[in-house]
Amino acid sequence: MESLFLQQVVNGLIVGSVYSLIAVGLTMIFGVMRISNFAHGDFSMVGAYIAVFLLAWVPGWMGWVGSLLAAAAGVGLLGILVERGVFRPLLTRWTDLDQIMVSIGLFILMENLAQLFFGATPRTLSDPFGGVTVNMGLVSTSAMRLLCFAMAMVIIIVLEVYLNRARMGVAIQATAQNRTAAQLMGININLIYAVTFALGSALAGLGGVLYGTLFAIYPTMGAIPTLKAFVVTILGGMGNIRGAIFSGFILGVAETLGGTYISMEYKHAIGFVIIILVLLIIPNGLFGRSEK
């Protein structure tokens, strides 16, 4: 017998894993640099297109794994360029509002450049499993979806280990906690900015490949991941990495269960209801620490 409830939980966890991955990048950049990057989902779009072109060139497993690596590297590099060229000059000179406006401008620019260069035709990534489905009695899904979920989990765990064990990772966390104190401790703050933005963008790129594998790839695809990443980031507490990880899954499951048992039409509204409730009741998010 199949269970609607379990099926929806599985659907929610799979989508949630990708939300988490993309949101972690966003929240890292916010935590360290206090930048709300509205173009974050468009970095995912660029990652997805890198996968499209690589998979056209090298099909199958090699291409898929390769495209994850290439998307992380390519979008990470793009992140360094954008951080150095666009955001860093603004960090000291302008106000928060300027940063928000610039990132919205970046989002419009990237979307339109993508349509100009890649065309509007929607594309999908070919499934190296050849579309094998997995029917486990209570729930059904595809091998590819399970792999995307597993991949997201692996990347998140590697990131957690890196941030807590590696020297650079600890320095990033220190900067997020207190920029001035970190600087006084001899941390090269500009290097931290570059690494954080590169890492955050690379995560967006990886998330984009997974998102593109689950769904479809087209120039405006970045808008939904950006929106969801902001919901997740607010839910988890702005700048809180572990909060973003858990909140991604919470949002994924809340959307599918809300869609099933409350109203299908309001599935997207659930995220916004969550934002409003969180900001009203617990402004620092479910996992947030209070500002000192």
Binding site: E2, L4, Q7, Q8, N11, I14, V15, L214, F215, A216, T220, M221, A223, I224, E255, T256, G259, T260, M264, E265, K267, H268
Partner: peptide
């Protein structure tokens, strides 16, 4: 009857319900 918005990408919630 279910509805989706133009530009939606994840339909698994609705399809799971249709399947029932």
């Amino acid at each position: 009857s279910f509805y989706f918005e133009i530009g939606d990408t994840d339909f698994t919630t609705q399809i799971s319900k249709l399947k029932q």
